[in-house]
Design a protein around this nucleic acid. Sequence first.
DNA 1: ACGCCCGCCTGTAAGC
DNA 2: TGCTTACAGGCGGGCG
Length: 278
Amino acid sequence: MPELPEVETVRRGLVEHVVQRRIDSVELGRERAYRRVGADRLIAGLVGSTVVSVDRRGKYLLFALDSTETLMVHLRMSGQLLVHDATTPRPAHTHVVLNFANQVEVRFVDPRTFGEVVVFGPDDAESVVPELARLGPDPLVDTFDEMVLRRSLVRTRRALKAVLLDQSVIAGIGNIYGDEILHRARLNPLRPANRVNREQTRRLVRAVVDVLNEAVSAGGSTLRDAQYVDPQGRAGSFQERHRVYGRTGQSCVTCDRGRIKSASIGGRTSHWCAVCQR
DNA sequence: ACGCCCGCCTGTAAGC
DNA sequence: TGCTTACAGGCGGGCG
């Protein structure tokens, strides 16, 4: 579910509750949620440590600890991080609870348990979280311009939509924002990446940065199932500004002539206007 | 090397 | 109403 704007909203919602605070204890539920490191390593890495900062790279949340270790959380499809008072009943599928002072709990909740909680240190980062090293630039954190994007586009004839979803090209874009970005850039999701010219590449860079920033400002997108909420349980509002995602069959709100088409591209349902996206 | 497809899980909605 | 099926925001592994 959560893509860059949702993860960034979660990050911002956590900062005031956890930075400069110590993890007094950890409670663990379903093992699959911390399958990568196991209970002993997770507890040893977290208990007694103080959170120094909460950072984000693409869809990965990274809590820097004063021990020099890092807590990584990935929400994947259905994960949530919620800040609750200890007296609030725990939602179903609460798999990891971090207990801070003053009854503050950070709860990792995930019905599908695709998401996970991981701890690693400087010495085992490479072996435990190799995917972090493979991440491409985060458009809101790293240098991301026409030169950077062009280098990735020219080397492949994959569909543009598939390239936008490739986390080694750009970190943070998922299915919803991939569709919205291509619509903003007026580019067809099926267009081979190596057939995008310089002017179109500039448009695409701008669309990536603008759509993601606007979505962050709106607190992300919360769809009908209300799966995504921020750590305080609040929904986002960017879904009200979606122009193609989930609008199959409706007329295009931009050009008013095309109808929104949908089809599977690279195994993901994509939405676009065949009139304004070339 | 690249590109595609499947599996991982559960919940929800749609179809019969 | 109740059962079955399809589908969902992501990602890694394995295959051709």
